[in-house]
Amino acid sequence: MASRRNTIVFTDWDGTVTLQDSNDFMTDNIGFGEERRRELNIEVLEGRWTFRDAFRDMLDSVHKPFPECIEYLKDNIQLDPGFADFYKWAKEAGIPVIVVSSGMKPIIHALLVKLVGQDAANNIEIVANDVKVNDDGSWDIVYRDESGFGHDKSRAIKPYAELPKEERPMLFYAGDGVSDLSAARETDLLFAKAGRDLITYCEREGIPYTVFHNYTDIHDKVKAIVNGEVTLESAIENENVEAL
Rank of each mutant, 00 (worst) to 15 (best):
E166D: 11
E203I: 05
K88T: 05
I8H: 12
I70A: 13
F172P: 08
I218W: 10
I8D: 09
I95H: 12
T27P: 11
V44K: 12
L79K: 06
N214F: 04
P106I: 00
R168C: 06
W89P: 12
I141R: 08
D136C: 03
I98E: 05
H63E: 14
P208H: 12
Q20K: 13
D21L: 02
S154H: 15
G15V: 05
R168G: 10
S182R: 15
S3G: 14
V113C: 02
Y87S: 06
G15A: 03
F212I: 06
E71Y: 11
K105S: 01
C202T: 04
D188F: 04
A235I: 01
M26G: 06
G103E: 00
D220R: 15
G195W: 11
G206M: 02
I199K: 02
T231A: 05
F32T: 11
G15H: 00
V142D: 10
N240P: 01
D197N: 12
I95E: 09
S234T: 11
N23Y: 14
V100Y: 02
G103Y: 05
I157Y: 03
V211T: 14
W13K: 08
L59E: 14
S138C: 08
G82D: 07
E205W: 13
D176V: 06
L189Q: 10
D53I: 13
D85I: 00
A90F: 02
A110S: 08
A128W: 04
V44S: 04
N134E: 08
G150Q: 11
N214K: 13
